[in-house]
């Protein structure tokens, strides 16, 4: 993957910057350029919105056969997470015993290495999630 493709997503990948529909107020992540509810009314009215980073595990899996970019990193957990703002995203869950992950688990975003472009290429950072201690 080329560097520009990573670079332009930095705000969302580092800081969970999504979009809020200026018409209905619904929050979207990953960012969208149109609200699927308000459609044409929302054109040009999608505003940047930073997610708080907290959410709940809706479903999860443990990847044991990783793609080439994640070789040597397995097993790792991938989850479908419902953010407190109501949108869903896909991310890894780290820093916990894989057996402890469960549907309904509360998580918070943290900052991790996602992948790297081989030994000589750029390192790509972004969000992953860890257990949210109450």
């Amino acid at each position: 993957m080329g560097v520009p493709r990573y670079w332009r997503e930095i705000p969302s990948r580092y800081n969970l910057i999504g979009k809020k529909c200026g018409v209905c107020g619904k929050i979207y992540f990953p960012p969208r350029s149109i609200c699927p509810t308000c459609r044409r009314k929302s054109a040009g009215k999608m505003e940047d919105y930073k997610l708080d980073g907290k959410g709940t595990v809706e479903s999860f899996t443990i990847i044991r056969v990783p793609p080439p970019e994640f070789e040597g990193k397995s097993p790792y957990a991938i989850a479908l997470i419902k953010m407190d703002e109501g949108c869903y995203l896909t991310g890894q869950i780290v820093d916990c015993n894989l057996d402890d992950i469960h549907i309904g688990m509360r998580v918070e975003a943290c900052f991790r290495r996602i992948q790297e472009d081989g030994k000589r290429g750029a390192i790509y950072y972004g969000y992953k999630f860890r257990s949210l201690k109450s």
């Binding site: 040597g72 990193k73 991790r112 290495r113 390192i123």
Partner: peptide, 16 residues
């Protein structure tokens, strides 16, 4: 450090 932690990620967590 975890497999996906380095000086940058630790710095970011501390800075935040």
């Amino acid at each position: 450090p975890a497999i996906d932690e380095d000086t940058a990620t630790i710095s970011v967590e501390a800075a935040r």
